[in-house]
Design a protein around this nucleic acid. Structure first.
Lengths: 350, 350
DNA sequence: ATGAAAGCGCTAACAG
DNA sequence: CTGTTAGCGCTTTCAT
């Protein structure tokens, strides 16, 4: 059985389609015919064709989520927040995996424009000027979450990555460490690479730690690259007492290497990670990590997107608050009681 | 600047809109006008309005993905596969988080029908008869991935959960274990709960292990519940030499509890998990786990959905192959060399 | 309050 | 090969 249309309902109720439209959209009075119409609609299992409505209202109540990778838990949590807000606002979310390259982002941007999505949410991406211009040319309003854009007028929902890295480093310094290694992410990653190294270096400088005492090795945020980076770090400076990693996977890798070399955490080596993914809670001891309120960020990004569509004024784009999670991987250099109290700005209410 | 329509292009090229439509859809010859049209389209930055096209072709090239939770890495990997296949097939994916309750699934089913999606992909859900009938009534074709449905005519992409659990258990038995505990999932979860317990029990029966020697405790698949379940298990039978958990998080929890109690893995206790999420590779030693080819399953589910839409005959729904991952958490009961060779059917080529 | 009619932007017959 | 004419299912004037 094919789906019933507004015409079928109109015939069944003995009225015109205009009347059906009005009744079903509560734009007609509560007359007697209203009931007849509703009953007919019910009986026929009528569901309005959203496509037809979109075509005429010029609003698809849909947003596109552009993200480099959809499968990691970072992306999942943001998506969860986006989806939740979308649900509440009556929007649908089309997910687009843009991958590493730029070509797929362009492809999807065109696709989304062609599908008349009302806005795009760009995640974990540092948009180039060219990409920004493409989006503009496609008349596709967008917001950025956990990323950046060259246009200061575009809403961005993100933490201050440099400050967060500095806070994590400072926590290590406060615990008494003076020789701290960093396992950084991609050396030219403008979102999760560069700012975190910068924050690390800045905090070390402030603490008066000499460049030689704060070696940096780069990984790709993944576990395996963390193993390699950690080994190199300890080769360069076997006397490190603490490590700050730009991702939890790399932090866990650091713990694995420490374990292999008979260094205990936190007695012999303190470790701080980044992102506070679920994994961080399951290590022994639990990993201290920089937490971003990912779900809340997704939620907020979707809200911002909706406001953008409605042409509502947007609140100034203040960075989102980050926080250090409680854990057991940070302690004083020479051993002693574990240290893991939260440091830095409080996490926002979810 | 508002988006250009086909009419604008037609005027700019000095032809009718029908000609524009034909040229742009390669349904008109390569005449001289074709170039004129293409140039005009290019110049105006014309992008066809997919909505209008959908309305007339009665095909939205969109599928809805219904999943209980979008944020865990299990869901993420399946989504990744779905998205990938969708991209290749020219489809878009709308994600819908149905949560635990049934009401949101119903809501989304109606929404998707109203949005004229061509099909739905239902994930990690054991559809009830009522839910199945709703989908039918909405004229919404669907496939199931990592779940089940009452209608044998509906394509299902899933492993044989009972067999997989039995294989994991048998691996433990083969290693020499005779007192094996299980940390199960939800006691009435028809997808990841019941079948896995059943497979565990069946394998133990086959091995001649007495019911008392194969205690079962239930968790909710999460880490914390795993801690509780493991402690209860060891209280009941402190002499257990192996544990099979219905999720990796619970398996890692078992390892944590073992560690707390001074039991070494795998010397004193062998552990097998389920799902082989990224986390499993990062434990010390790496966790042996039952792997489902999640990405491939998502990919295949999307393919099946597309075939369903096209009315193409579907291949018989054979279960997907599972496999045990290589790891270091399984060994003989009394200590000895680690054991972690793959067991069970080979994993499918991705 | 209701119905007739005009589209939203596009595709698909049908003529020429 | 091209243009004309109908719609897809809906919302929305504009009369009635």
């Amino acid at each position: 059985m094919s789906r019933a249309t507004i015409k079928d309902v109109a015939e069944a109720a003995g009225v015109s389609i205009a009347t059906v439209s009005r009744v079903l959209n509560d734009r007609g009075g509560a007359s007697a015919t209203a009931r007849t119409v509703r009953e007919a609609a019910e009986r026929l299992g009528y569901a309005p064709n959203a496509l037809a409505r979109m075509l005429i209202t010029q609003r698809s109540m849909t947003v596109g989520l552009l993200q480099p990778m959809v499968s990691d838990s970072f992306a999942g949590q943001v998506l969860d927040g986006v989806e939740d807000a979308a649900y509440e606002l009556g929007y649908s979310v089309i997910v687009c995996s843009t991958g590493a390259g730029s070509s797929r982002l362009e492809h999807y941007a065109r696709l989304l424009a062609s599908r008349q999505v009302d806005a795009a949410v760009v995640m974990s991406t540092a948009l180039t000027q060219t990409q920004h211009e493409l989006l503009r040319a496609l008349a596709l309003p967008y917001v950025v979450v956990a990323g950046s854009t060259p246009d200061p007028g575009v809403p961005v929902v993100a933490i201050d990555g440099q400050q967060a890295a500095a806070d994590a480093t400072t926590a290590l310094v406060t615990a008494g460490h003076r020789r701290i290694g960093m396992i950084a992410g991609g050396a030219d990653d403008p979102v999760a690479g560069i700012p975190r190294v910068r924050g690390f270096v800045a905090a070390c400088d402030t603490a008066g730690i000499a460049p030689d005492d704060r070696p940096v090795e780069h990984g790709d945020f993944g576990y395996d690259s963390g193993l390699v980076a950690m080994r190199r770090l300890l080769e360069r400076r076997p006397d490190l007492t603490a490590v700050f990693a730009a991702s939890d996977e790399m932090a866990v890798a650091a713990m694995t290497v420490a374990d292999e070399q008979g260094r205990r955490v936190p007695e012999d080596l303190s470790v701080i990670g980044f992102d506070a993914i679920p994994l961080a809670r399951m290590t022994r001891p639990p990993l201290v990590s920089v937490a971003q309120p990912l779900r809340a960020m997704g939620y907020r990004a979707m809200q911002a997107a909706e406001q953008l569509v409605r042409g509502e004024p947007l609140p100034a784009a203040a960075p989102v608050a980050h926080a250090l999670t409680v854990g057991g991987t940070v302690g004083p250099p020479s051993g002693g009681p574990p240290f893991g109290d939260p440091v830095g700005p409080p996490s926002p209410r979810s």
